[in-house]
Design a protein around this nucleic acid. Structure first.
Length: 277
DNA sequence: AAGGTAACCTGACTGC
DNA sequence: TGCAGTCAGGTTACCT
């Protein structure tokens, strides 16, 4: 479910409740996520203060003096905030972890359990050297993410531009929805080999990726108030899609029916006319 | 080095 | 109402 915008909106919603606050207790009801939640996690962070809540790609990084809690929401994960720890609903089937942080309860829900909660000890060095983070591409809002940079980093990539966007080793945070949406905005055919994009198209794509993600964050940011204490997936949102999920419906620009194709076992949506090349 | 595929897991939805 | 089949916002491990 969550791509970069959803993770960033989550970060902004949680930050006021966790930054510079002390973890009072940790409850792990179900450790079987993508990898087991480390059994020693409660011991490691109970009594410790969250120095900062950061995002790298789709990962949330909880910084402590003694290490970093790395969290990923997978396909179906969500963190929810219950501001009053004594007024938290009974945990449901998929409420796997609670972090009691001073007055609030921060609860991780993840039906499919593709998410992850891992610990990186400060003694092991910079968290960015962690195997899950070390090969990540550039942040889309980093000033160095430009058309020029996109052009240079795709010269040896024979795969389609859609799949290169999804791979996350060039630019992070673009998931299946926003890959289709960005390519539509840049008027680029998703099947085009990345290495065959010229500088002009790379520039258009860099701009489109940044705009699409920024708009999605803005839309989600407007739901921040509901996010805290929201139940279910009410805290989530989606940018009004131009192509994603609109197979057979008319293109909003030219009315040609949007098509759905498979690329690497994932659905891609695009307009054959607007995105000819 | 880069690319393709299976695998992890549950729930929602469709069609018979 | 039930059952089988399909699909879902992610990513790694493994094999070419």
């Amino acid at each position: 479910m969550p791509e970069l915008p959803e993770v960033e909106v989550t970060r902004r919603a949680l930050a006021p409740y966790v930054e510079r606050r002390r973890v009072e207790s940790v409850v792990v009801r179900e450790p079987r996520l993508r990898w087991p939640v480390p059994p020693q996690l409660p011991m490691l962070i109970t009594g410790q203060t969250v120095a900062g809540l950061h995002r790298r790609g789709k990962y949330l990084l909880w910084t402590f003096r003694n290490g970093t809690l790395i969290s990923h929401l997978g396909m179906s994960g969500a963190w929810r905030v219950w501001p009053q720890r004594h007024r938290v609903p009974l945990p449901g089937t998929h409420d796997h972890v609670d972090l009691i942080v001073e007055s609030a309860c921060i609860r991780l829900t993840d039906p499919r359990r593709f998410g992850a909660l891992l610990w990186h000890d400060a003694g092991a060095g910079d968290v960015n050297a962690h195997p899950l983070l070390v090969n990540l591409g550039i942040e889309p809002f980093d000033a160095r993410f430009t058309g020029e940079w996109l052009y240079r980093s795709t010269r040896k990539r024979a795969a389609s531009i859609k799949q290169v966007l999804l791979a996350g080793d060039v630019v992070v945070g673009v998931g299946n929805i926003y890959a289709s949406e960005s390519l539509f905005r840049a008027r680029i055919n998703p099947k085009r080999a990345a290495q065959r994009l010229g500088q002009v198209r790379c520039e258009a794509l860099a701009v489109a990726v940044r705009e699409v993600l920024a708009e999605a964050i803005a839309v989600g940011g407007s739901t921040l108030r509901d996010f805290v204490s929201a139940d279910g997936k009410d805290g989530y949102f989606m940018l009004d899609a131009r192509v994603y999920g609109r197979a057979g419906l008319p293109c909003r620009v030219c009315a040609t029916p949007i098509v759905r194709v498979l690329q690497g076992q994932r659905a891609t949506y695009y307009c054959r006319l607007c995105q000819r090349r």
